[in-house]
Design a protein around this nucleic acid. Structure first.
Length: 597
RNA sequence: GCCGAAGUGGCUCAGUGGUAGAGCACGUUCUUGGUAAGAACGGGGUCACGGGUUCAAUUCCCGUCUUCGGCUCCA
């Protein structure tokens, strides 16, 4: 079924939900109820009434009852006055009506069913709602199966300043089979949740005493993190980046000069007073790198200068925003700031996109399928949010757009998503449940160089101002780890696996030879362990399998006498007995090439 | 931060107005095995924390903390 048809069914189902709610709680004020990616929702103002998931069976039963009377939707055009009369007690609908009429839109109602509706004050028959349309022809026939999923608070019109409404989420499908299929897929996705896998595979933990949003990486999680860091540093050094280390703490003045302070005050940790200095944990690294740049006079011959850092940063995220490793309060950015002449900027940005493509490829992510580009633009009229310089914005946005077009990157444009100092290209990654998040970013900054008075000397000996490109190659390492855990479902490619090989001696008599094998693997820098517990071989294999260790080496009398190892993969394949050196070479080359199993 | 839900041994969960139970994990002993769980015995919980109701609270009520689903925000 095409998406449009499915959406129309879901939108119809949202009406059905509203109808049921109005029947059950007649004083409720309804607002809006669109179809969304996975289903639909409807926002209500229930007044003092509390609604929870315990009410779902009751609501669903009422929906089923009402649906029997819904054979079609009738469209009716009404005057503004009529509409306002109908919704006289509902400020939300009144606001919408005013808005529509101001925009010169026609006001339409859609009605379905013929039962008596307890809708004050009209007491009309059937369920009537202000709506722009987009319904199924025959809801009775089309809504084959529906289910309410969750209840949540949501601000009216998405603004924190407005009243919080009660949102009910649901989904529906033409058939029960499709609904069951959907629910099953959701369950499957849950199994890949990085928080669950992080616990199961012992990658990271949280402690109430340490604090929320502050993950503790175990030795296994740390191994993955270290491999990622090594990969980033090695590749960036190859590409001419200069890796530096700057302090995660600095005087608050630094962020006042940069202009970050007023914008990000709410998400920065409070100032610490020490002696007569005011210090702050850094929420970003940019100004630190600027000071390095400014530490000496720069010539055009040096540009572009690419300072990179594996950089811990501190942001006070609201408690409700924290999620596993995806959103934390201390994160580590694979950060860099490139100081360039504006004429070189385009090439610099292209190089950055190429680097990001390189990493994505290493992670097995496909352009267009797993990730796409978002050109995040400013909003000229919003002078509070964005630095005012229309010409510079225009120029910067065009450069970024040209880069995307010229490199034939799949991208879309989004207004009002830029940084305050310039537009950016965000690399949007899809997670297991299909949700898109910003993973990496490239930003064009024409503001900071001014604020910090950054300069270089050109061919004619004159002072010029460079442009700064901010970029994160593999983003925040915490978030990237979360993505990768979910992408691989915990079965990491060999190079990332915390334990690459598990040695399984069949009996105690094979321990000595196993120890010998262990030493040889270790000498080759392979991460290996030996399971010397007094358990059966089957139990040891099961344990290694559950830990998703890529290779198991079964060692018994036969292997010992032939100086071999019997290799089993985590997919359950028995590769048979092979020469130990041959196995070592195989694993080493897989690690070297970062190939997936 | 806001709306809703949840918190019981290391993990996954059951259960109760009369101070708790399973499986896995852990420890000891026995078993020495050929590609996903060998057996017996044992240790381990202020039932998140604080207050209230009650003769009695892990259970009921209130508050706090943490986690989860959303909203807002975001790398």
């Amino acid at each position: 079924m095409d998406k449009e048809k499915l959406n129309s069914i879901r939108h119809s189902c949202a009406h059905l939900l509203a109808a049921a709610v109005m029947e059950l709680w007649p004083d409720t004020k309804r607002t809006i109820g669109p179809a969304i990616g996975d289903g639909f929702y409807y926002d209500f103002d229930f007044g003092d009434q509390k609604i929870s998931e315990e009410d779902f069976p009751k609501i669903e039963a009422k929906m089923a009852e009402i649906l029997k009377t819904w054979a079609k939707f009738e469209k009716k055009e009404v005057s503004v006055e009529e509409a306002k009369q109908f919704y006289q007690d509902n400020p939300y609908k009144l606001e919408l009506i005013d808005e529509f009429s101001k925009e010169g839109q026609k006001i339409t109602f859609y009605k379905s069913g013929n039962y008596k509706q307890s809708l004050k004050p009209s007491q009309s028959s059937g369920f009537e709602d202000l709506c722009k349309g987009g319904h199924s022809e025959n809801p009775q026939k089309d809504i084959g199966a529906f289910k309410l999923l969750s209840v949540a608070g949501a601000y009216w019109r998405g603004s924190e300043k407005n009243k919080m409404l009660t949102r009910i989420y649901g989904t529906c499908f033409p058939t029960q089979t499709e609904l069951d299929e959907y629910l099953k897929l959701q369950e499957e996705a849950k199994k890949k949740d990085h928080r669950k896998l992080g616990k199961d595979l012992d990658l990271f933990v949280f402690s109430d005493v340490v604090g929320k949003g502050l993950p503790l990486l175990t030795e296994k999680g740390t191994t993955i993190r270290r491999e990622l860091e090594r990969m980033v540093v090695d590749e960036e050094l190859k590409r001419g980046y200069l890796h530096v280390i700057t302090p995660p703490l600095a005087k608050v003045d630094l962020y006042k000069i940069s202009g970050h302070y007023p914008y990000y005050k709410d998400t920065m940790y409070p100032v610490m007073k020490v002696d007569d200095e005011e210090l702050i944990l850094r929420p970003m690294t940019c100004p630190h790198h600027f000071m390095l740049y400014k530490s000496k006079q720069r010539s055009y011959k040096e540009l572009p200068i690419k300072y990179a850092e594996i950089s811990p940063q501190f942001r006070y995220e609201k408690s409700g925003e924290l999620t596993g490793l995806m959103r934390v309060r201390v994160f580590t950015l694979s950060d860099a700031h490139i100081f360039t002449r504006d004429t070189q900027a385009k090439q610099v940005i292209k190089d950055v996109l190429d680097l990001i493509d390189y990493f994505n490829k290493a992670f097995g992510l496909k352009k267009g399928k797993d990730y796409r580009y978002r050109l995040s633009l400013g909003e000229r009229s919003d002078e509070k949010k964005y630095y005012k310089d229309d010409e510079a914005w225009e120029k910067a946005e065009n450069i970024l757009r040209e880069v995307l077009v010229e490199s034939k990157a799949p991208f879309f444009e989004a207004k009002n998503e830029a940084a305050f100092y310039g537009p950016k290209i965000d690399i949007q990654l899809k997670n297991v449940s299909g949700k898109e998040e910003t993973a990496f970013t490239v930003q064009y900054d024409f503001v900071m160089p001014k604020r910090f008075d950054l300069k270089y000397i050109d061919e004619e000996g004159k002072e010029q101002q460079p442009v700064v490109i901010h970029r994160a190659s593999i983003g925040a390492l915490e978030r990237t780890m979360a993505f990768l855990i979910e992408k691989y479902g915990g079965a990491f490619p060999v190079w990332l696996s915390p334990i690459q090989v598990m040695i399984v001696p069949i009996s105690d008599q094979n321990l000595k030879y196993s120890q010998n094998v262990l030493e040889q693997l270790k000498d080759s820098n392979i991460r290996v362990q030996i399971d010397d517990k007094a358990e059966t071989m089957q139990a040891k294999i099961r344990n290694a399998q559950l830990q998703k260790i890529p290779y198991m080496l079964i060692i018994g009398k036969r292997e010992e006498s032939e100086n071999k190892v019997a290799v089993r993969t985590r997919e359950g394949k028995d590769l048979g007995a092979i020469d130990l050196n041959e196995f070592i070479q195989k694993v080493k080359s897989e690690i070297e090439s970062k190939s997936s199993l």
